[in-house]
Structure formats: C-alpha cells, structure tokens
C-alpha cells in the first residue's frame, strides 16, 4: 500500500523539475526517531535527458509540534553552506517554508545510503576496532566546523551574529525562557544550574563560529571503517562560541553509560583532536561553563518534549520517550558536572 504523501510529494517535485516527465514517488517510509522533524526516505523515478533516473531522497517535514522550535531555513542553509567542504553533509535540493504543498514546511535532500547513525549499533561490539577512528573523525570534523568562517559561508544572512562577549547570555536567556514556558513541574536542579551559570559567566568567545547545536554521537553517519560520511540534524545551528558544540558533546548523557566522552574517548584526547583541527584552545573553565550550560539545554529539550505531548500538539511516543528516559538522567548529569 502506498503512503498518502507519495502523490503529493510527486506533484510538488513536478513543479521544481519542469524538464522531467513521468515523475513517480515510491517506497516513501518514515524513518524512526526524529522528534524535532518528521523524516521520510523515498525513491524518485523520472525521465529526463532521454533516460530514466532513480534517486533516493529524504523529506524532512515539520511536525505539528516539536520538542524544539527552529527555523527550517536556518537548517537548510547550514547544510548548504558546508556542501563540498571538509564537513560532510547531504546535498540539499529544495526548501519550502510554507505549508502549501505538504501542510507543513519541509525540505528535500539527497539520501546518503548504506551507513549507520545509531549509537546503540556503534557500541554493540561490531565496531570496537574502529571506535578510535570514529572519534578522530568526529572531533576533527567538529574542529573544522569551528574553523569555518561564518561570514565567508554566507550564514550571517540567516543567523544572528552576537558579539563575542554576548554569546553565552543569548543562549542562556533562550533556554531559560524555554523552562519558563514549558516546564510541567518545577526543576530545582536545572534552575540552580542556571543561577550558577548566570553568576559565573565564561570569558568572551575566542571567535564567532558556526555552532551545529546538536553535535553528538548519533547525529552523524559512519561506516565499518570508522569513516564519517555526513553530519546530520543541523536544526539548532546558530552563530556563537565554538566551545558550545564541544560542551554539548561532553554532556554526560552522551557518554551512553560508557564512561567516555561521546562513548568514544577520554575527554583530554577528544579536546586534543578538536584543538588541532580547529586551531583553537579550549580554556578549561570556559569549557566547564559550556558543558554545564549544555546539560541545562538538554533538560530544556526534554522538558519541551513533555510539554509538546501534554499540550496535545504532538502525541507521538517519540515525544514521551526523551522526557521519561532522560529527565532524571539529565539531573544526574547536572549534579555530576556541578561537582
């Protein structure tokens, strides 16, 4: 049985490919996960230039309500900015910012086939021999993101550029506001952490960088040799302090219970790889601030997912899962980082 979205996606693509004929969308299936976007893979079959084409594509569509609230355009442009660079990303094709075609904003991209993203698969034993290689690639690519010039990439047209001494405040204000409007029960540990962060600000960012916003094990595609083929999930991308991304990866949640950063490496080794690739130095006190901040941000996301379910905007199980599974673990992570 075909998916009801298939003819609608085909009709949309026909408007974007006027030289193609016989456009068919087939095998459209939702991919598991994706609490912030609905993600589908599908085949696009069409005739053009005297031959038949069969391509594998990805549709990323906004859900009715999300655990995070982000701009589709920002994510699309972040992917596009890094195309062809040392930061591997899937190729973006089309962006629609209205709900006219598919009820909600969406974009369509090339699928990068044949690779894994799951941390559970990575840590199940079959990849043990290449975990060091995955780690080297993971933090090298993050260093490349930090090294990139957001102005040269043109991202300042889509992302606000805070002063280097205002990066921390903008992010903290943003996530505290999410607690204010989303928390369904008081969060004393996160609130205490927020007060500490505000009373003990970090030094100004060494430079203004592209921040991926969700750079962690689980958000890149890897292969059996330990190579990384694409960095995914740029929906929280923004301009800010490069230590923010490093600190997000050091949220103890993302150790997946393995006692290593990202489940992959001791912290000092991860930092050394990142420093070499980025050309920056990770000040320990500033990195501690950003790590604790990212624990608060994580809790803000889990609180937001619970709120999306409670308000009825999105009743999918994926909205409940992080709230149940991670809220207490995130509190434990905050306590661990605060010492």
């Amino acid at each position: 049985m075909s998916h009801p979205l298939e003819p609608r996606v085909a009709a949309y693509i026909a408007t974007r490919m006027p030289d193609a004929s016989g456009i068919v969308v087939a095998n459209l299936q939702r991919i598991s996960g994706g609490a912030s976007r609905e993600t589908y893979r599908f085949r696009l079959i069409y005739a053009q230039g005297g031959r038949t084409h069969d391509r594998r594509l990805i549709l990323r569509r906004d859900p009715p309500a999300s655990l995070i609230d982000t701009e589709r355009r920002v994510e699309f442009e972040a992917y596009r900015a890094f195309a062809g660079s040392a930061v591997p990303v899937p190729k973006m094709l089309w962006l629609e910012e209205t709900g006219a075609a598919l009820d909600h904003p969406f974009f369509i991209a090339e699928e990068i086939e044949g690779f894994q993203a799951s941390p559970q698969v990575l840590f199940a034993g079959g990849y043990e021999a290449v975990l060091r290689r995955v780690a080297e690639r993971k933090w090298t690519i993050l260093g490349e993101i930090a090294r990139a010039d957001p102005m040269a990439l043109g991202l300042h047209r889509w992302m606000a550029a805070p002063a280097v001494d205002a990066c921390w405040r903008r992010e903290l204000d943003h996530w505290e506001a999410i607690f204010d409007r989303s928390e369904a029960e008081p969060q004393p540990i996160a609130r205490a952490a927020i007060r500490w962060l505000r009373a003990n600000p970090p030094p100004p960012a060494r430079k203004l960088c592209v921040v991926h916003g969700d750079y962690r094990t689980g958000n890149f595609l890897y292969d059996e040799a330990g190579e990384i083929h694409a960095v995914l999930d740029w929906e929280m991308a923004h301009l800010g302090d490069p230590l923010e991304d490093l600190g997000w990866g050091f949220n103890p949640i993302w150790q997946f219970g393995r006692g290593l950063e990202g489940g992959l490496l001791p912290r000092d080794q991860a930092i050394a790889i990142w420093e070499q690739a980025s050309g920056l130095v990770a000040d320990p006190a500033a990195l501690h601030w950003w790590t604790l901040f990212n624990c608060v941000k994580g809790q803000g996301i889990w609180v937001g997912s619970a709120r999306a379910f409670i308000d009825g905007g999105n009743r999918e199980p994926i909205m409940i899962y992080p709230a149940w599974w991670l809220t207490n673990a995130q509190d434990r992570a905050i306590l661990k980082v605060m010492g």
């Binding site: 049985m1 998916h3 299936q29 939702r30 991919i31 598991s32 369904a184 029960e185 619970a306 379910f309 409670i310 009743r315 199980p317 409940i320 709230a323 149940w324 809220t327």
Partner: peptide, 27 residues
C-alpha cells in the same frame, strides 16, 4: 514521570489499535 503515566498509557492504547491495522509500513 512527566507526562503522567495514565495519560501515556491511554495514548499507547490508541496507538496500538492504529498500528495493528493494515496499511502501515513495516518500518
């Protein structure tokens, strides 16, 4: 846990009926 357990169980009951029927992709 938040959302509270009864509301989640109620939602899961509806979900199971929805996904037990035909026309849902295996994945």
């Amino acid at each position: 846990m938040i959302p509270d357990v009864p509301s989640v169980l109620g939602e899961l009951a509806q979900l199971l009926i929805r996904y037990a029927g035909p026309g849902v992709a295996d994945a």
